[in-house]
Computed example of a mutant assay.
Amino acid sequence: MHKLSKILCLGYEVFTDTLDKVPKGKKIVVNTINQYSYCIAEKDKQFKKSLQESDILLPDGIGIVVAVKWLLGKKIKKIAGADIHEFLLHRLNKDHGSCFYMGASKTTLNKIEARIAKDYPNVKVGSYSPPFKKVFSKEENAIIIKEVNTFKPDVLFVGMTAPKQEKWSVKHKEALNVNGPICAIGAVFDFYAGTVKRPNKTLQNMGLEWFGRLLKEPKRMWRRYIYYGVIFSGYLIKAKLRPSYTA
């Protein structure tokens, strides 16, 4: 298997390779990191451990791209959860593969399945809508795992809020019968279903996707992008002043 390119920044090995290097037929956990998740992980040891134990940790945020450039002088490309979702669906369609969506409401999952049938007709799709709660019981986790394992997907997409989805993916990796990536991609479920519109390509390419989301949902997103943006800037300054903290 190709050795994946990564760069160590702020205590995390961030993926710097191209998506075509994501291995096939190998069970791996793919998570994402951005300024918000970094800040939350600094206060949540289990979340931090889950991110650090990811097989692939995508730089899903301009804040991480800027951090790598400012602290290490390296240029990396932002890779959003939506990017790997699209890439894997293209690959599965070409290979006549299968994927399973775990998370979100049944309504959202139905919309996802209907769209995939149109966009990627060669992909076999399964899904399960778990209970909407902060923590699953042992019995609920057993049911979720059984649903996934009965389907035996080539790719598992996990769509719950952070940090729940990242913790769940890492914790249950070994119990899941998945023949490929286990991807915690959160909001992508809503983007693809069309229940939430992703900011346009111009903003994405300019590194301003966060601004587009802020404008659309200011009450929900201001804390994530403004408040935690300031907090994250503080961590960067601290790391710049104390180089040993960067790693």
Results as ranks from 00 to 15, higher is better:
N122I: 11
L241H: 05
P131S: 13
K111F: 04
N149V: 03
Y120V: 10
Y192R: 09
L241W: 05
N110W: 00
K164C: 04
G234P: 14
E139K: 15
L214T: 01
M221V: 09
S98L: 05
G81W: 05
M160T: 05
K138V: 12
G97R: 09
K118G: 00
N93Y: 04
Y227C: 01
V178I: 11
T246Y: 05
I79V: 15
A117L: 13
F132V: 11
V68H: 02
G97V: 12
G61A: 12
I231L: 13
K3S: 13
F189T: 06
P59R: 10
T18F: 02
G194I: 14
Y245M: 15
L8Y: 08
E209M: 01
C39I: 10
K171W: 01
P131R: 08
L19E: 05
A142S: 11
K216M: 07
V29E: 05
I226D: 03
L57N: 14
E139H: 10
I144P: 01
A175N: 11
K26T: 15
W168G: 08
G63S: 11
V158E: 00
L51S: 08
S233L: 13
F100H: 09
I112Q: 02
S105K: 14
Q35T: 03
V158M: 02
Y235P: 04
D190W: 07
F191I: 13
K106I: 05
G186D: 07
P199R: 13
L236R: 14
K164W: 03
A187D: 07
D60G: 10
K118F: 07
R220D: 04
F232Q: 12
V196F: 00
D83H: 12
K106V: 06
A41R: 06
A187H: 10
G97L: 08
W222L: 02
N31I: 01
S105R: 09
Y235G: 03
